[in-house]
Design a protein around this nucleic acid. Structure first.
Lengths: 233, 233
DNA sequence: ACCTGAACACCGTTCAAGT
DNA sequence: ACCTGAACACCGTTCAAGT
């Protein structure tokens, strides 16, 4: 009983066949975000071959659509099974997967909110699993809560910074070179540390950088969870 | 209906006495950002009692103005003197001051970029000092560079998340209560960890939360810099 | 009952015209 | 030489009108 097609003979006949749905709108929005790093409701309408206002039948406003898109972006993220290594290894892999899911859809990371959580199925599953791993590491509920908030903020902040780095790159000058040139432009005798950073920055990339920061945090978390007096002795 | 006269009376004509300058524009922009968390060029013009386009004589575009505003926002931040405690203590205080400076002007944190650094005097001083403290902690130049990038990302990400939390608060429901209610709305037998977080979240606030995360990072940095086998024995 | 598109109240920025 | 404001090309969203 889906065919209420009268003569589908208009300017845009094929669009009328598959009517709008929340899922179709969300994936179109993510597609646009992938291309530009942002999207407008009007561009979304055009992309769907539909009046921009048609979207408002399915989502109250742009905010509500973005919330749904955040959850959808996390759909590819599958929490590791209990047998997939130690709690620390599983926590590490969940963080890396979380970053990948955010990186795949620029502009989404800034929308991840712990204070007004989306409560979509994927967000909820991620939260439940991550908190569980923190407790498994040996953290009490109070520390696990603060650690969870800290981890999410660190990862979304890092991904946002990465996106800005990528957006500022031009085709022939990667962000490392831009940063190097900026720091190298200052008098080295007055700013020796900036000069040192200018030299070093070529040897990083965004993946190395993220994992370095993540491992710092995870190392500290593991030690709080399991405070043995001599871990490496 | 106050029509403007040529007589130098009232506040309108006084703008002719103090013509626009970069500094006056920047502090007006920060004032507006303080009130709303964001500002538009048109609102800025109105706030200055000036045609919106007059600002373009002093800044190429909004982006350039915001870059200058970021550096100005860091003017209140004074790096601690060498005698103000250990390198770790001084690093901690510089991070806390950095956060305070960003928090004072909502919307600025998202603009802090390490990959396209502003190179304003305050940004440069902060960078030079922070890198120096990381080296003083015992980190090599490569690790200090990665650690610097990580620290900036963590702090700006945390502040952005805090700003979102504050913006979403209503006068009678703080973010903790919103978060608690969200997590408590799910079936606790299916999501026991979310239920636990719902209970815990009331006991944090943004300051506690930030310092907890910062201390995690600093602890790991200190240990990398000075890898003694038994630090607390 | 559903959908549309004009209209409203904004934006950043360009540029010709005014002083 | 400096400044202005109309104009352009956008935005999210409301709402009356159309089918």
């Amino acid at each position: 009983m889906a065919s209420r097609s009268t003569a589908p003979r208009g300017k845009r006949p094929s669009r009328a066949r598959t009517p709008l749905s929340r899922d179709r709108i969300i994936s179109a929005a993510l597609e646009l975000a992938d291309e530009r790093g942002d999207f407008s409701m009007r561009a979304l309408g055009a992309h769907l071959g539909v009046d921009p206002m048609a979207v408002y039948r399915h989502f109250r406003d742009k905010d509500a659509l973005l919330d749904a898109a955040v959850d959808a972006a996390l759909a590819t993220l599958r929490p590791p099974a209990p047998g997939d290594g130690s709690a620390l290894e599983r926590l590490r892999s969940i963080c890396i997967e979380f970053r990948s899911a955010l990186t795949a859809h620029p502009g989404i990371a800034t929308r991840v909110s712990t204070t007004q959580p989306t409560l979509g199925p994927h967000t909820v599953a991620l939260t439940e699993a991550t908190f569980g791993l923190l407790v498994e590491l040996g953290l009490g509920r109070a520390d696990a809560t603060k650690s969870f908030l800290m981890l999410i903020r660190f990862i979304t902040g890092a991904v946002s910074a990465e996106e800005r780095a990528r957006a500022e790159e031009t085709s022939d000058t990667p962000w490392q070179e831009q940063m190097r040139a900026a720091y190298a432009s200052l008098p080295p005798e007055q700013f020796p540390n900036l000069a040192a950073m200018a030299e070093e920055v070529a040897r990083t990339d965004l993946d190395i950088e993220f994992e370095y920061g993540l491992d710092l945090v995870l190392e500290a978390l593991a030690r709080r969870g399991n405070p043995g007096p001599s871990v490496n002795a």
